[in-house]
Design a protein around this nucleic acid. Sequence first.
DNA 1: CCTAGGATGATTCAGGCA
DNA 2: TGCCTGAATCATCCTAGG
Length: 605
Amino acid sequence: MVKNLSKEGSDKIDWDTEDELEIQEIQDAIFSSCRDLRTTGQHALSGDGEASSSSVPCRLSKFIQQFVVMGFSEESIAKAIEQNGENSDLVLDALLTFKVIEDSPEEQPTASPQLDPSICSDDSYSEYNENFLDDVYEEESWSSDSDNCICYLKDESSSLSENEQTLLSLANMGYPVEEVSIAMEICGKEASLAELTDFICAAQMSRAEDPYLPEDVKPKLKHISNDSGGYKKRKMFNQLCKGKKQRTIFDEDPISLPKPMIGFGVPTVSGPAMVRRTLPKQAVGPPFFYYENVALAPKGVWDRIASHLYDIEPEFVDSKYFCAAARKRGYIHNLPVEGRFPLLPLPPRTINEALPLSKRWWPSWDTREHLNCLQTAIGSARLTDRIRKAVEDVDGVPPMRVQKYVLEQCRKWNLVWVGRNKVAPLEPDEVEMLLGFPKNHTRGGGISRTDRYKSLGNSFQVDTVAYHLSVLKDLYPEGINVLSLFSGIGGAEVALYRLGIPLKNVVSVEKSEVNRNIVRSWRENTNQRGNLIDFDDVQQLNGDCLEQLIDSFGGFDLVIGGSPCNNLAGSNRVSRDGLEGKESSLFFEYPRILDLVKNIMCGER
DNA sequence: CCTAGGATGATTCAGGCA
DNA sequence: TGCCTGAATCATCCTAGG
């Protein structure tokens, strides 16, 4: 069933051949277009943070949205962005500072009521917001460059009446406009936001418990069915303000990790039958999309990620079912889940099978069969020396205390036995093999050993991703056009290639030059003939740029990528700041770009 | 400047047990 | 139910040495 693409195979493929010069010209034109756009004030907030009344791109909207869902007013956000640019950390700091000032009665005796502390889950945010904006601003005051992109302009909102501002604030928090209106009528115009949120939540709770309530209404109320309403929201906001390392906490049932972590199924475990899932209408392609990140992110992160990707339930899969190393990851995608097949041959799934030379030295008391997650750093030589001495000092089987210490360190650093009493970290080519990359994929071309580990540690496990992508093979026998965001060392491209799906046009976005070179070199080594256009910054990809790309080869079939996990990963002791972290906030670029691609391809732009 | 080594916990979740 | 323990975790920053 599976055909791994051989050299001969790839030569037989009927490629869309294009003169290299022509490709270069297209590429140059697109690059210059993007640069031009970047410097000609297309962004509502330019470098100096000046607000513009022209159309506001989705990126900015999403950037603002992340603060709106925390309960900050759009005025404060606009002010904070003006002062700090689009740096999440700085903007958040500024917002918290505003909040402290506004909460101080001595300094601000007449604080605006819309800044009343409150917070909500943002699952229903967009929907309610759209309703709200439809109702309130039928033809003015805001602009949007897509149906899914709602943008706020500072000047207009500040010209609203107090009532309208209250309405706007509550709608931004996710409360339905109709319910806000009713609450304002019943509680009176003098009512504080706290009173209004309490009233709305009480009403929602009472309806949620109503056995005669239609089922299609109940899910929307799920997030308030198990809490104490506005009080809890305000309490959460207060927690939010306590420190910088706050997170959005969700009222509704948080997304939990499945056990076993096999998603919709893996080829090596006879788990529950493949489910036929129903995707929300707006999530259905084209294009197909596939998003990845660490499964063990801080609480609430996956809820937020899903809320920006059509509320699709993430598929959590541990790659230990595909190879000898664990890799717990979440994937949100709109691919079919039936008819998947794995890459063949199936890779070895135990340490002994994957590293047969280590078998000879493996002590019986080290019962590991799988390696832990392959990370970006390795154990030091000094550590392996300490372990050697600890084990050498005893005759025969070491005492439990030593065993425990050694095993703990081996698990922590993924050490393997390479000699009598001798452990060592994995070699880079072993990591390549475990992750499903060809040998020497990251070797040479100016990359250091340390950076090889780093690039590999940040990559996909190819067999896992390929299994999910395998359904594309029958759908695109002639090959596909791929938009690969946060490409890294090309895990997605390698997966598609190994599935035998020809890569016609690949637009790859990757910050690291070393990684871009690895992908380019791999393509040359494998004699691929499609086009590779690469960018170094996702933020360069604006609507006009994407439009030109899509015009030049007729649209993307797949938008794939895993955004930075730095601020989500448990290993990060310094800046595990969640989705608002410096790097991880680039996640918001993914739905922004996906929306743009969808809209351009639907001809709605 | 580049590279490698070393020191640096917190946040989750699961399972056991009183 | 609450507490404890164990386990896992796509990392960051500083420094020394070439």
